[in-house]
Simulated scan of single mutants.
Amino acid sequence: MWRELLPVGRYGATGGYRRHAWNGADAECRAWFEEQARSRGLAYEVDRNGNQWAWWGDPGAGDAVVTGSHLDSVPDGGAYDGPLGVVSSFAAVDALRGRGARPVRPLAVVNFGDEEGARFGVACTGSRLTTGVLAPERARALTDADGVRLADAMERAGHDPAALGRDDDRLTRIGAFVELHVEQGRALGDHPVGVASAIWPHGRWRFDFHGEANHAGTTRPEDRRDPMAAYAGAVLAAREHTRGGGALATFGRVAVEPNGTNAIASLVRGWLDSRAADEPALEDAVAAVRRAAEEHAAREGVRVEVARESYTPVVSFDVPLRDRLAAAVRAATGREVPVLPTGAGHDAGILSAAVPTAMLFVRNPTGVSHSPAESAEESDCLAGAAALADVLEELACR
């Protein structure tokens, strides 16, 4: 499975992946998922929000155990973030069948759409729509860098954007959701598999610096209203204000108008990603960056506007389910299992408000993620798939 999926959406110039929502690579990934489901005799369906499902057992029976992740990527992302969870889920189904296990409640594998938000700007779009966190009218109106609306992109891919919205019927079928994911850090140490305790609160904010376009070679410094200078000050402030303070703030995306080498910009739009161990710390970090942006904007004679585009509060995973995961992994490995929080957002975090959720992490030896250098050892991936199979057997087959 891994070898089949590996070349899909890979960009030769960087070695990273460009599997973005409703593009050609995403369509190939979705076709791969459907083929995996049908080749195993699993009941395949696509829900109203574009998420893919593969069912072992009656989808309508209720109290289902669901596992899976996502197949899309950040721009030039790595191979493991998301796909490892989907591949491992199918591998766990194969392992259960190899053991002769039979589910006593439905078991499903899911591929949530547009988890990374790389194209339309909102992360975990599929799970946010399903749980009602993202309003369908807002989702339909989201646009990519080329001005293409999400609704139009979905329609071109053969899906009905008019059907988007909270899916209570589906949520009531789910008794538990378990997501396996590559670790995005190096906290597991010498442990191949760990269990998540919580997800830090996190969000995305758009900073628009409005200045005045002018000639780069003839405009005196004192006559400039340069939004790029104000933006640069905000970027440095984000780094300084969160250094060692229990919060992270990163400007990782920028758009410039008119984007000419010999022109002073008229508009610089930057997106801030911020995360922290608790919500007050997150609020303080974003407020500090905003104050710095306003100070630099005033100094440069430009205007700044700030809009929050997405926000996820702190997520504490279901404790009984988390403890069952840890016990199952401990029984299989004979070792203590690390239980740790993460600063990375996941579909499991979005679903946690509606159904019991938990997560398994597979060790990342370098800690590098959202990069072509992201990696995991095959032995650790196999250990993760085996641990997931043990967990699913405990939850669905007994």
Rank of each mutant, 00 (worst) to 15 (best):
residue 250 T to Q: 10
residue 200 W to D: 09
residue 341 P to V: 13
residue 72 D to V: 05
residue 42 L to K: 09
residue 364 N to Q: 13
residue 303 R to A: 14
residue 138 R to A: 10
residue 161 P to L: 01
residue 9 G to Q: 10
residue 319 V to K: 13
residue 7 P to Y: 05
residue 260 G to P: 10
residue 383 A to K: 08
residue 267 L to M: 06
residue 96 L to E: 07
residue 83 P to F: 02
residue 292 A to T: 02
residue 23 N to A: 03
residue 64 A to I: 05
residue 337 V to S: 01
residue 88 S to C: 12
residue 206 R to A: 10
residue 261 T to C: 14
residue 268 V to S: 03
residue 22 W to N: 06
residue 39 S to M: 14
residue 3 R to Y: 05
residue 147 G to P: 03
residue 352 S to C: 13
residue 367 G to N: 07
residue 139 A to H: 01
residue 57 G to W: 12
residue 289 V to D: 02
residue 234 A to G: 05
residue 129 L to D: 00
residue 332 A to K: 01
residue 268 V to L: 07
residue 44 Y to V: 10
residue 292 A to Q: 03
residue 174 I to L: 03
residue 3 R to V: 13
residue 331 A to S: 11
residue 162 A to R: 13
residue 302 V to P: 05
residue 150 L to V: 00
residue 398 R to I: 07
residue 349 G to Y: 01
residue 124 C to Q: 15
residue 166 R to A: 14
residue 273 D to G: 15
residue 279 E to C: 11
residue 256 V to R: 10
residue 192 P to D: 05
residue 167 D to A: 03
residue 121 G to R: 12
residue 178 V to T: 07
residue 53 W to T: 05
residue 356 P to R: 06
residue 12 G to T: 11
residue 202 H to Q: 15
residue 396 A to R: 02
residue 260 G to E: 12
residue 240 E to R: 15
residue 115 E to H: 01
residue 184 Q to F: 08
residue 317 F to R: 01
residue 343 G to C: 10
residue 392 L to W: 03
residue 77 G to R: 09
residue 105 R to G: 01
residue 4 E to S: 15
residue 117 G to C: 09
residue 99 R to F: 13
residue 376 A to L: 08
residue 11 Y to V: 15
residue 25 A to E: 12
residue 377 E to P: 03
residue 292 A to D: 03
residue 154 M to D: 00
residue 343 G to V: 08
residue 331 A to W: 02
residue 340 L to N: 00
residue 344 A to V: 11
residue 322 R to P: 00
residue 159 H to Q: 13
residue 357 T to P: 10
residue 330 R to Y: 08
residue 74 V to G: 08
residue 312 T to L: 14
residue 195 V to C: 02
residue 43 A to M: 06
residue 84 L to N: 01
residue 253 R to V: 12
residue 233 G to Y: 07
residue 94 D to R: 04
residue 140 R to T: 07
residue 386 A to N: 01
residue 351 L to T: 07
residue 371 S to L: 11
residue 379 S to E: 11
residue 108 A to Y: 03
residue 281 A to Q: 14
residue 391 V to N: 00
residue 1 M to V: 13
residue 165 G to H: 08
residue 392 L to M: 04
residue 28 E to N: 10
residue 279 E to H: 12
residue 270 G to Y: 00
residue 354 A to C: 15
residue 297 A to C: 12
residue 114 D to F: 06
residue 35 E to D: 14
residue 340 L to I: 12
residue 198 A to M: 07
residue 81 D to G: 09
residue 167 D to S: 04
residue 20 H to A: 06
residue 339 V to M: 04
residue 322 R to Q: 12
residue 330 R to C: 05
residue 28 E to V: 12
residue 171 L to T: 00
residue 244 G to I: 09
residue 225 R to Y: 11
residue 84 L to S: 11
residue 82 G to Y: 02
residue 41 G to E: 14
residue 237 A to G: 02
residue 101 A to Y: 06
residue 55 W to M: 06
residue 303 R to L: 10
residue 91 A to L: 15
residue 371 S to Q: 05
residue 138 R to I: 04
residue 306 V to P: 00
